[in-house]
């Protein structure tokens, strides 16, 4: 990988609590074109996993790209991934770089 290539990281969050417990900002056609985590709530599944961090930019959710998705669409995809009962986890591909 070249120096300018952002490093991405796959993070699996187990559905260990009733909520995912993250707040996101951003989406296509905003200043932050990919959703970025702005809050992680204590006691939520994301907090329990210990791996997602404030500032992480979400590239993919369960293999679905966030690129080109407007804020509400990105939020809907994440919410549905958490609600889906066929999986006990949600996979996030994230990067720390914008």
């Amino acid at each position: 990988p070249g120096l300018l290539e952002p490093t991405s990281c796959l993070i699996r969050v187990a559905k260990s609590a009733a909520t995912l417990g993250i707040a996101i900002e951003g989406g296509a056609n905003t200043r932050q074109p990919l959703p970025r985590i702005v809050t992680i709530q204590r006691g939520g599944s994301a907090h329990n996993s210990g791996k997602l961090k404030v500032g992480h930019v979400i590239l993919e959710v369960n293999g679905t790209t966030m690129r080109g998705k407007e804020h509400r669409e990105a939020a809907r995809i994440i919410a549905e991934a958490f609600k889906m009962t066929d999986k006990d986890h949600v996979d996030f591909l994230v990067t720390e770089f914008n």
């Binding site: 909520t19 995912l20 707040a23 900002e25 905003t30 200043r31 809050t39 994440i78």
Partner: peptide, 15 residues
């Protein structure tokens, strides 16, 4: 001129 300066801020959604 940077394009992103003309783009609006995003709303925030709690999930």
């Amino acid at each position: 001129r940077e394009k992103r300066l003309t783009l609006p801020p995003s709303e925030i959604t709690l999930l």
